[in-house]
Amino acid sequence: MADSNISPALALLVSEVKVVNVGLEGFVKDLKDCDIEVVHLDWSPPAGGDPEMATLLAKLGV
């Protein structure tokens, strides 16, 4: 586990990478082949597929 005093970016480099994959499903297999823990998101376009609304909701933390 990374030391809590180091920067988050360095912590990423010295810790185990654990990935959430959002999009192309093929990337999951590649990561698993390298023994990297990965969870694939069951993603579909948010906000009824309206990009502007999706951006707004993300900014609002929804």
């Binding site: 912590a11 990423l12 810790s15 185990e16 990478v17 654990k18 990935v19 959430v20 994959n21 959002v22 999009g23 192309l24 990337f27 823990e37 969870v39 694939h40 998101l41 069951d42 993603w43 376009p45 948010p46 990009p51 999706a54 951006t55 909701l57 993300a58």
Partner: peptide
């Protein structure tokens, strides 16, 4: 398969990176 990034973070201790390849219209969100 979690339905949101929030659910993934809650369900996987130590998750530290999101690999995002959804269409550009939604990627920033």
């Amino acid at each position: 398969r979690p339905r949101s990034i929030a659910a993934a973070v809650n369900g996987v201790p130590g998750l530290n990176l999101a690999l995002i390849s959804v269409p550009g219209d939604f990627a920033a969100a």
